[in-house]
Simulated scan of single mutants.
Amino acid sequence: MVNCSAVNCKNRSKNNCIFHRFPADPQRRKRWLINCRRINWTPSSNSRLCSDHFEPNQYEQNRQDGRKLLKPNAIPTLFQVPNPPKLFAQSRRSTYKVC
């Protein structure tokens, strides 16, 4: 059974969540760890984060095979911790001048 490694998350593989491995790339892995807010913790090869910690725009859209895969540069931002990380939700900038 797989458990989510995030603080205050009780999701398990039997809860119909998708679980993601920590990235091998050192820079992305460091960013994931910072956002997880786990002090003095190093993820093992079995450590996972569940899909609840990723914004919908962090997943590839309209895949032909119907699978739900993270984008190559996805960073988890949704955590139940004090002072959570900033979201990646992009606001569109208007090209029109407001008078």
Score class of each variant (00 low, 15 high):
27 Q>V: 09
97 K>G: 00
84 P>G: 06
55 E>I: 07
99 C>V: 10
93 R>F: 10
46 N>Y: 13
87 L>A: 10
18 I>R: 06
73 N>A: 09
20 H>I: 07
68 K>R: 12
73 N>D: 11
97 K>F: 08
31 R>H: 08
10 K>N: 15
9 C>P: 00
1 M>Y: 14
52 D>V: 07
71 K>F: 07
74 A>D: 01
3 N>C: 08
73 N>L: 14
44 S>V: 04
47 S>I: 02
89 A>F: 14
49 L>G: 02
17 C>R: 15
83 N>S: 08
34 I>H: 11
8 N>L: 05
69 L>F: 05
91 S>H: 06
10 K>R: 15
35 N>F: 06
17 C>N: 13
7 V>Q: 14
48 R>A: 07
96 Y>A: 05
73 N>T: 11
29 R>K: 13
38 R>C: 03
96 Y>F: 14
6 A>H: 01
81 V>P: 00
16 N>Q: 14
72 P>C: 08
23 P>K: 10
55 E>F: 08
74 A>P: 02
47 S>L: 00
36 C>D: 02
2 V>L: 11
60 E>M: 08
78 L>N: 06
21 R>L: 13
45 S>N: 11
90 Q>R: 14
77 T>S: 08
21 R>S: 15
44 S>R: 11
91 S>F: 12
92 R>L: 08
31 R>T: 15
83 N>A: 14
35 N>D: 02
91 S>C: 10
95 T>A: 07
56 P>C: 02
54 F>N: 01
86 K>H: 11
39 I>K: 15
85 P>H: 04
20 H>R: 09
96 Y>M: 10
65 D>K: 03
60 E>T: 13
30 K>W: 03
76 P>Q: 05
4 C>E: 08
88 F>C: 07
35 N>I: 09
50 C>S: 04
53 H>A: 00
11 N>S: 11
31 R>E: 13
3 N>M: 12
39 I>N: 12
71 K>R: 15
25 D>T: 07
61 Q>E: 14
30 K>N: 02
22 F>R: 05
22 F>A: 01
98 V>N: 04
59 Y>S: 00
57 N>H: 15
28 R>A: 04
19 F>D: 01
70 L>P: 00
64 Q>F: 05
62 N>W: 04
38 R>A: 05
62 N>Q: 12
58 Q>P: 00
83 N>Y: 14
9 C>D: 00
44 S>I: 13
59 Y>W: 08
9 C>S: 02
73 N>W: 10
1 M>W: 12
96 Y>G: 04
66 G>C: 05
75 I>V: 15
40 N>I: 03
40 N>V: 05
71 K>E: 05
20 H>C: 04
72 P>G: 10
4 C>N: 02
66 G>W: 00
13 S>K: 13
36 C>W: 01
44 S>G: 10
17 C>T: 07
27 Q>L: 09
7 V>E: 12
76 P>W: 01
90 Q>G: 03
59 Y>L: 06
13 S>Y: 01
95 T>H: 09
73 N>V: 06
5 S>D: 03
99 C>K: 15
51 S>G: 13
61 Q>V: 10
58 Q>S: 11
45 S>V: 09
82 P>G: 05
83 N>M: 12
95 T>D: 04
28 R>H: 10
13 S>H: 06
16 N>V: 11
50 C>A: 04
